[in-house]
Amino acid sequence: MLAYTLRRLGGAIPTILLLIIASFFLMHMAPGGPFTSERPLPPQVLANIEARYGLDQPLWKQLWDYLTNILLHFDFGPSFKFKDRDVNDIIAQGFPISLTYGFLSFLVCTIVGVSLGVAAAIKHNSWLDYFAVSLGIAAQALPNFIMGPILILTFTLWLGWLPGGGWNGGQWQYLIMPVIALSTSYIGSITRITRSSMLETLNSNFIRTAKAKGLSTRTVIWRHAMKPMLMPVVSYLGPVFVYVLTGSVFVDLYFSTGGLGQAYVGSALSRDYAVLLGVTILYGMLTVLVNLATDLAYAWLDPKIRY
């Protein structure tokens, strides 16, 4: 297992490297640069700024310097737009925020989704089942970005229970709406996947055998059905985890949390090359790590898999 993990991590290095190179060239292909402005800068001034950020160098040299800076100093360079901050600052400031509400959303959608799905499968064809199924479909079909305005109108304007946005160091009042908005659509899909997987497991031979042996339903479900049932769920949860951490643009936008999603889209639009690359690398590494974690979880769930 350890050898496997190390091998996978080693394999991730070329992946990340390729990601950096691809993003780097893609970024430089985009029309407009970080210093394109309404009134063009005087040529001498522009030349000076570009020299300061190394943009006057040939592209391969820029890429080389960038990579060596990361490897040797763990330095992702200064932001082109925000003069008093560098990329490390921006990530250090925004990532904990994204991580906090992303992780909470992940917990909420996993716990609620799996419980609903299991309950629906056990009480197959009961009202609980129908409720879970319709809730799942509705949550999945609603585009998640309409949750933002609905939540703010309800909880902030009409009920006056929660602040309409901001972060404020992550106090619980500020966390509730982002977490609800982000987890809703996943609750839907996790419920559906869990339910169908549980149904399939309950109908399989080894469960019937267990039941025939006279074991109680509870023991059958907890001891025997749980692990195999979770396998498809886990393979779905991996990408969900990456998504709740990275795709939080609309949460940042509606709830002004100051998370990294907004910083990423903002940097793409303002051509803040350094921030764009830094965040891309972070997300790439995160994806690789989560994929690895998913595979390891799989090995734990399925005794047939050996690495």
């Binding site: 703010i152 902030t156 309409g164 936008l253 002004s256």
Partner: peptide, 18 residues
């Protein structure tokens, strides 16, 4: 100064007294 990107959300928060 609060950064609120969406003007409709900003208006809602204004009406909520924030």
């Amino acid at each position: 100064a609060l950064v609120i990107n969406d003007e409709n959300v900003a208006l809602t928060r204004y009406l909520a007294g924030e």
